[in-house]
Design a protein around this nucleic acid. Structure first.
Lengths: 148, 148
DNA sequence: TATTGTTATACTCTATAACTATA
DNA sequence: TATAGTTATAGAGTATAACAATA
């Protein structure tokens, strides 16, 4: 006898959780050979796109609490992928930047994640994918309104 | 100066994580007055739809490991919402069922979660919502193929 | 006073190994 | 031998309070 979850399947959140779990498992499998996880890849990507940003700015961009950024950057710095330079104008803050190895690692991992993304959305047309991203953005914004 | 996450916005997983975080925060806020969380609501819903199922079947339906189901049912049993009856044919297993209070609590929470879902998808048409659910299902199935 | 980075801490969620009782 | 439930435990991930240095 099979168990039904039809009552839950009506809810966007349930479908989203199951889809996200599938994506997260696959992306972590994808990133493992590169020595990265979803969160470290995200941090690397944002630092690469915004060199000189502070830990507080990175925390804000990724919706991570400041204390948890410390360990994250510790890990990336120890791996030789990120540099903590002192900010010129504000001596409280660091200016984060990628090392040469950080840039290379990010470039390779980014290619792998693009392939992962294509795999996960193989059942969707190009228009479908764009539409999905728009709808996810709509849900995210609805949540921001609710939170205030 | 604002920090850009445009490089990550290309990825389905990033959009999905942000949308899911928004949904999870809102649904937990929604369920708190009912004494439930996302996972306890899900368990209640599946038990209500499949009375007599075992803990192992529930674990499989919700993709939760068996040991973690034990604490979950402990909590719902202590709250007087779920009963562990002995399975007639297999004395190793429990037959899970909702109490009267469990059914009432589920009915009320289900109404609240439907309102939450409508709120989170307020920016989408009825057809959009159906399309979103289909696409999430497509991503979930792509993940199952990848896992094997 | 407020903010940046930090430490310490705690709480939740999740995953694994090993046990018991039944099958 | 295999499965259901359980216990113990460990690892992530996430959140809060409080501190020193700087603004």
């Amino acid at each position: 006898m099979s168990v039904s979850d039809a009552a839950l399947r009506r809810f966007t959140g349930y479908g989203m959780k199951r889809a996200f779990n599938a994506i997260q498992a696959d992306v972590n499998r994808t990133l493992k050979p590169h020595g990265l996880r979803m969160v470290t890849f995200s941090a690397l990507s944002v630092i690469g796109e915004n060199p000189g940003l502070s830990q507080a700015q990175l925390a804000d961009a990724l919706s991570i609490e400041r204390p948890n950024i410390v360990m994250l950057i510790d890990e990336l710095e120890a791996a030789g992928l990120v540099l903590r330079e002192r900010h010129a104008a504000d001596r409280r803050a660091y200016a984060l930047a990628l090392t040469g190895e950080g840039r290379r690692r990010l470039a390779r991992a980014d290619r792998a994640v693009r392939a992962h993304d294509a795999r996960m959305t193989a059942g969707l047309s190009t228009e479908d994918r764009a539409r999905l991203m728009e709808m996810l953005g709509s849900v995210e914004r609805a949540g921001e309104e609710a939170t205030g």
